[in-house]
């Protein structure tokens, strides 16, 4: 078996320098649309193109509600007046209302956080991006984040998916079985608002319908670094981003 040891050593270090430094490799994030100042007619046509209600008409142009964006690219492809697009990845925000003392982590959690991942009915994209966090590029162990299969050991409940009828009871049981303090990180447009699945006879339209959410990570799916940012926000090691971008802000400074 020595061949594998040699193979591993020869591969060298692949890990990203994030969060100490910015990651600049190509293809790490699908990016998100940016708010833009536009004439009313153009703004209206773009808002009508968005199937996820992520674009909103503003007095001076188009605002972007990133919580709802599903990266369908309809606001940038097949139109003569595309919105701007930015390739950021620090997208996680802290949700107000998570200020309950019992939910806050102390310094003991700085370098050792155990995470239970629950899929409540997604398409597999968010789940696969969470899995990538354990690959050599992202290697989240180095930051003290560990996946655990049991709620009894978990500090963070990371939820992906639109919350199907069948997953309500298992999710509730998992949350209740976790010791305090605990935090809930909702990952992906479906976990935030139902995404393309919306609210229906089977989908509740977001995890917040059932559990108190502390950190939201938008994206469909959010890339691994955005999820990592969400975990860092959950333990207070990175400042949160803002999710709603308005034309009245200076465009492009919204992440981090």
């Amino acid at each position: 078996m020595s061949q594998w040891v040699i193979k591993g050593l020869r591969t060298g270090v692949k890990s990203t320098r994030y969060p100490r430094a910015e990651e600049t490799a190509a293809g790490i994030s699908p990016g998100l649309p940016t708010a833009a100042t536009l004439p009313l007619e153009v703004a209206q046509s773009l808002v009508a193109r968005c199937p996820a209600d992520a674009l909103e008409l503003a007095p001076a142009g188009v605002d972007v509600n990133l919580r709802r964006c599903i990266h369908c690219f309809r606001c940038v492809r097949g139109t003569n007046s595309p919105l701007g697009w930015e390739h950021s990845y620090e997208w996680a925000t802290a949700v107000s209302g998570g200020n309950d003392q019992k939910r806050q982590f102390g310094p003991a959690f700085d370098r050792s956080v155990h995470i239970l991942v629950v899929d409540t009915g997604d398409c597999g994209a968010c789940l696969n991006e969470v899995r990538q966090l354990n690959n050599p590029y992202y290697n989240m162990h180095r930051l003290g984040f560990f996946l655990t299969p049991t709620p009894r050991h978990a500090d963070v409940l990371l939820v992906v998916g639109a919350l199907t009828d069948h997953m309500r009871v298992p999710l509730r049981k998992a949350y209740d079985a976790m010791p305090s303090p605990k935090r809930v990180v909702a990952v992906g447009a479906c976990a935030l608002s139902g995404g393309i699945f919306g609210r229906s006879f089977m989908c509740a339209g977001g995890v917040a319908e059932l559990l108190p959410v502390d950190v939201e990570v938008p994206g469909d799916p959010p890339p691994p670094l955005a999820i990592l940012h969400g975990l860092l926000v959950a333990v207070g090691r990175k400042p949160p981003a803002r999710l709603h971008r308005a034309v009245s802000d200076s465009v492009g400074n919204a992440s981090g």
Partner: peptide, 15 residues
């Protein structure tokens, strides 16, 4: 996945 994103804009070829 990164190559997908570079080529088509999305890591899972959405859109």
């Amino acid at each position: 996945l990164r190559l997908s994103c570079v080529l088509t804009g999305h890591r899972y070829l959405f859109g």
